[in-house]
């Protein structure tokens, strides 16, 4: 189960209008991507503190949510700051290799840090919005912005079914783990393959049953999407 979702329904500003929360998020994003560097870390810390205050989430849990994103962020930053060249003067801690030098680029390091702070600020702001805005408010807001219905429908169905998918994933994963399916690399690769196959098969079976249920509810090819509450 996605515990992250629970906070959206029970936080100190759950009753705020989604438009106001979206505006706050937008201001946060503008600050994250504007050129004045000093503002960004201040905003990052302030928004992170504010999120923890509003949602009553523990710092430990809050940091754990970043684990999923950190590998992507780190890979990007490493790609930016690591360099290879012939001039050791341009590189921090140069390491001689095959007649050249590799290490941290003196030119690119500030750039890498700037990107990291920028991305960190944007992520913290997005978490703030996601953790304080219940899903029906997000749908109401998307409707308010007059996005195409098909896009809102897709968003709505993905949100509904992602929980079922995660639940199925967790059940299969736990069953495999209990039978030592992830004890070493070889088994892990094998079990992951089976997991993917089983999930795919379940999707196919569930799809058929979902079509039956849609028929029973007289589905006409369109999901009604509700506008914002008056």
């Amino acid at each position: 189960m996605l515990t992250i979702d629970k906070y959206a329904y029970a936080n100190r500003i759950v009753q705020w209008s989604p438009q106001l929360k979206a505006l706050c998020w937008l201001i946060g994003m503008i600050i994250a991507f504007q050129p004045i560097m000093a503002l960004k870390p201040v905003l990052l810390v302030a928004v992170a503190w504010n999120t923890v205050y509003l949602t009553h989430v523990s710092w430990h849990q809050y940091f754990k949510w970043f684990y999923a994103l950190l590998p992507f962020l780190l890979l990007s930053i490493i790609g930016i700051v690591f360099t290879a060249g012939t001039d050791p003067q341009q590189i921090y801690a140069p390491l001689k290799l095959f007649g050249g030098y590799i290490g941290l680029s003196k030119v690119m390091l500030p750039r890498g840090i700037a990107v990291a702070v920028q991305a960190g600020t944007a992520i913290v702001c997005t978490y703030w919005f996601a953790l304080t805005t219940p899903f029906q408010q997000i749908i109401g807001f998307l409707k308010w912005t007059h996005l195409p219905n098909i896009l809102i429908e897709e968003t709505m169905l993905m949100y509904r079914f992602i929980f079922i998918f995660i639940e199925a994933f967790e059940q299969i994963y736990q069953a495999q783990k209990l039978r030592f399916g992830y004890d070493n690399l070889h088994l892990m690769v094998h079990s992951s393959g089976i997991l993917a196959k089983m999930l795919f098969e379940q999707v196919m079976v569930n799809y058929e049953q979902m079509v039956y249920a849609l028929d029973a509810k007289l589905y006409q090819g369109e999901f009604y999407v509700k506008g914002p509450e008056p």
């Binding site: 709505m156 049953q209 029973a216 009604y224």
Partner: peptide
């Protein structure tokens, strides 16, 4: 009207009252 065994496969909306209203909107 038919109600199937697995509830999750016949509930399409994320909020209870929206889902109950689904068939009526289709009509």
């Amino acid at each position: 009207g038919i109600v199937f065994q697995n509830s999750d496969q016949q509930i399409f909306y994320s909020i209870v009252k929206d889902d109950i209203a689904f068939a009526l909107h289709n009509l």
